[in-house]
């Protein structure tokens, strides 16, 4: 039985702090531009659709669809070697942006493109932002 990937607290800077603080609250935080309405991820200081500074953060639904994935059978990095096989995926969030993640909670062979998934948060050691550090991943909805 392969071990799960052991996540660690992630480094952040002031552009990405709100995202990781959200993870600590078990909320998937995205950015929206108050001027043009564009939703973006990963977080940036400016809206890259209109270059406005008027960025606000909001908690996304945490729901999405598997856009694509791969079952990783080989990774030489010690942190991941014992977790093989694991599922690396892009999830297209219902709000539009797409993020890279892992799919857990089912056999790797059961993952399909188009599968509906929901976020879950894995609490990890250490602090990221003001909340407890956590890393988002997805499981079948």
């Amino acid at each position: 039985m392969p071990k799960e990937i052991e996540y660690t607290a992630q480094p952040y800077d002031w552009e990405t702090r709100a995202y990781w603080e959200g993870c600590g609250r078990h909320e998937l935080v995205l950015q929206r531009c108050r001027d043009c309405g564009a939703v973006q991820h990963r977080p940036r200081a400016l809206c890259v659709s209109c270059l406005s500074d008027a960025i606000e953060h909001f908690a996304a639904s945490g729901r999405g669809t598997v856009h694509t994935f791969t079952v990783t059978n080989q990774n030489g990095l010690p942190a991941f070697r014992e977790a093989c096989p694991y599922v690396l995926a892009y999830v297209a969030l219902d709000e539009g942006p797409q993020l890279m993640t892992n799919i857990v909670g089912c056999e790797p062979a059961e993952v399909e493109i188009g599968m509906r998934v929901v976020v879950e948060f894995c609490d990890v050691e250490g602090e990221a932002g003001e909340g407890a550090a956590a890393v988002p991943r997805f499981r079948p909805a």
């Binding site: 660690t8 800077d13 990783t72 690396l88 993020l99 890279m100 993640t101």
Partner: peptide, 12 residues
């Protein structure tokens, strides 16, 4: 901070 959106997930 940039790699943190990929780093945790074991992308090769």
């Amino acid at each position: 901070p940039h790699g943190a959106f990929v780093g945790p997930y074991g992308m090769t």
